[in-house]
Design a protein around this nucleic acid. Structure first.
Lengths: 225, 225
DNA sequence: ATTGTGGGATTGTTGAACGATTTGACGATA
DNA sequence: TATCGTCAAATCGTTCAACAATCCCACAAT
């Protein structure tokens, strides 16, 4: 029965708009479609071989994820996060992740492992100088923290916040070395959690957010007038 | 200059899809479009005088808000929240609102007042037996709590959670008397906050969530097999 | 009672069309 | 020279019609 349940996802055909949206999302997060770029309906639709109506549905999906911004009669643009956006994002993360981390002692072992494992991965990958994968593991670490809350809605929204943050990293031109600087913080947090110091771990996480936000805002304001 | 900024909102014409979505959202939250109902593209589009394509864009917007669910090649339906949905919703609220409430001593007076005022309103309206308005004030109370975080993204997402919860109330057929039962809780929370007992207020809020969730899930499972 | 098997209705997607809006260049005026 | 209309081109917003793909339901067959 379990194998049947796995096959379910494959059977659920994705709509064309969904597939187009997934493709565009990748391009945006990769940086191939740079922040601020305008996405012409005709050009993109022609290149992808889908009609304008279908493409517009894909745009709506990405607008929901805040990767694109829609301006009336002007078109859709790849979002270019500002300093205020970053402050807003970190205000949300502070509440969500610190709140979730406080549940550490009330969750399953699997949930706790979903926090610990990514840090081990990040360390291993950092030693190989694979900062791209180390950065992905860093994201997984924070996804694991949110997962402690046990709410798919909260996890989904957090994924959107993370994606938007990736855009901000790109604008600030610090995709890789950003995660690098804060990896030690993650290790400290996991150590504190393993030793029963949940409150101290939460404090560390809050400090991390303070430092990361300040750093990112500064670089962002420097990168764009 | 301030008057100019106010007029900005009026100038920003809403698209047809946006207006249609707003209209449908009202109908859904009113209960005029009952949970589980299928929304025919042809029927709704014809009644509202908009094309299928525009209507589909409106559907996408409401699907983002989780008021509608989209099933491939089957159409869109008014969401019918289940017990699991409610548990998920409250798991998210616990983290968000309890986390936000902990910031009580670090926010502006205006933010604190946005928490106190709705409770006063709810009490006044409850005395007049206007439970509909009392319920709205109850929502405002929780919106105020989320607002302590100072993140528009978090507030927007919370609004979606609240809207989805209203749907659950409707299915459980306890729109009005639900808020009534928990009004005393809100008063106690505000009292504790005013007397400096932030941690106790958070504990009270958590208890409120526990009770509300249990109650709602029970009624929901009883209302639908 | 369960399993094919139609046909009818609805959604998914496309392509074209036209009005509305934005944009940028061009020239007129002070 | 700088500012202000004016106009044409490009693009978006919306509608419409059409067809393929899919789902649903009733009916027949075993």
């Amino acid at each position: 029965m379990s194998t049947l349940a796995q096959g379910k996802a494959e059977l659920e055909r994705a709509s064309t708009a969904q597939k187009v949206a997934d493709m565009l999302r990748e391009r945006v997060l990769d940086g191939e479609l740079a922040p601020g770029l305008r996405l012409s309906e005709e050009a993109i639709g022609g290149a992808l071989g889908v009609s304008r109506n279908t493409l517009r549905e894909a745009f709506r999906l990405l607008t929901r994820d805040r990767l694109l911004v829609h301006e009336h009669s002007r078109g859709v643009f790849v979002r270019r996060p500002t300093g205020d956006d970053v402050r807003d994002l970190y205000a949300a993360r502070r509440v969500i992740e610190c709140g979730a981390l406080r549940l550490w002692n009330d969750v399953t072992d699997a949930q706790r492992e979903a926090v610990r494992a990514p840090v081990r991965q990040a360390v291993a990958r950092a030693e190989k100088n694979d900062w791209t994968k180390a950065g992905q593991a860093n994201i997984q670490f924070h996804r694991g923290i949110v997962g402690l809350a046990g709410s798919t809605r909260l996890s989904d929204e957090s994924d959107r916040l993370f994606a938007e943050l990736m855009l901000a990293f790109r604008v600030a031109q610090e995709i890789n070395d950003f995660h690098q600087a804060y990896l030690p913080w993650n290790r400290r947090i996991v150590e504190l959690l393993n030793n029963g110091g949940v409150q101290q771990a939460v404090d560390q996480l809050a400090e991390y957010f303070d430092a990361a936000e300040e750093d990112l805002v500064a670089r962002l304001d420097a990168a764009q007038p």
